[in-house]
Design a protein around this nucleic acid. Structure first.
Length: 269
DNA sequence: CCCGAGGCCTGCGGGC
DNA sequence: TGCCCGCAGGCCTCGG
């Protein structure tokens, strides 16, 4: 579910509320997530939260003995609340902190993960990730270079975390609309002007979605329970059959690799 | 090596 | 009302 902007929204909120607090207790109601809840996390008891980082869609919490790696899968949610807040049946993990606040992990489908590592620079899950889309080493030249002599369609390629980290189905669709590129185009076929336009669109869209605290479709809520505000900015995602905001032609939907792709057949070429 | 389908889960909405 | 099907912000694993 949550893509880079939603995870970044969580990162900022956790940093604001919980950085420097000590982890008093860990409660696990259901350890059977995508992989079993990492038992090493119990060793972090009585340690201070030192850093809150993000890599792609992974949230990284640093303690002196190591890191908690959180991935939210499709339906994972984080909330920061007081003890009095009633528990939901899909609440699976709670971190109880010294300022009497609880970080609570809720995940209806349990595709998410709570893992552990000593060194985030030496962990297989993160090693294989491509560049951060908002960093300087992600740009149109990079996209141009790695797309030569490859013949996969651009849209599923953008969702491959080895190419660029953090882009999922919503933002892949939106970025291609902004750069006016047909999602079915084969990547080798894009010229440098187009890959530059695409990289710039990716940065634009992600930054603006972060500013609006993400997109709420079904499950995503901010740590205070408020929805994200990027929904009104969506140009194509979930708009099949509705008129394109530029040319009024109906937005088309088709599956690519089992995922819905939305685009304007008139504007995107 | 590369690619795509399958599968992990739960819940919702639409058609009959 | 109920059942069945398709659909949903992801991504690892495995087969060809």
């Amino acid at each position: 579910m949550p893509e880079l902007p939603e995870v970044e929204t969580y990162r900022r909120s956790i940093e604001f509320h919980l950085l420097g607090e000590t982890l008093l207790d860990i409660r696990v109601y259901n350890p059977s997530l995508r992989w079993p809840f990492a038992l090493e996390i119990y060793n972090l008891k009585n340690q201070m939260l030192l850093k809150v980082k993000r890599r792609g869609k992974y949230l990284l919490l640093a303690f002196s003995k190591g890191w908690i790696i959180i991935h939210l899968g499709m339906s994972g949610n984080l909330r920061i609340s007081n003890q009095s807040f009633p528990k939901d049946k899909h609440d699976h993990v709670e971190l109880i902190m010294t300022n009497s606040k609880i970080l609570r992990y809720n995940d209806q489908r349990r595709f998410g993960a709570w893992l552990w590592c000593i060194d985030i620079n030496k962990t297989p899950l993160l090693d294989s990730l491509g560049p951060e889309p908002l960093s300087n080493n992600f740009n149109g030249n990079y996209l141009f270079k790695i797309s030569r002599r490859k013949y996969t369609p651009i849209k599923p390629w953008l969702m491959d975390s080895k190419i660029v980290a953090g882009i999922g189905n919503i933002y892949a669709n939106e970025c291609l609309f902004m750069s006016r590129i047909d999602p079915n185009r084969l990547i080798d076929n894009l010229n440098l002007v187009e890959t530059i336009k695409l990289a710039d669109s990716i940065k634009d869209i992600l930054l603006s979605a972060i500013e609006k605290h993400g997109t709420t479709l079904q499950n995503f809520l901010q740590t205070d329970g408020m929805p994200g505000n990027f929904n009104n900015s969506l140009q194509v995602y979930k708009r099949d059959g509705k008129p394109c905001y530029i040319c009024q032609q109906p937005i088309k939907r088709e599956k690519q690799r089992q995922r819905s792709t939305y685009w304007c057949t008139n504007c995107q070429i």
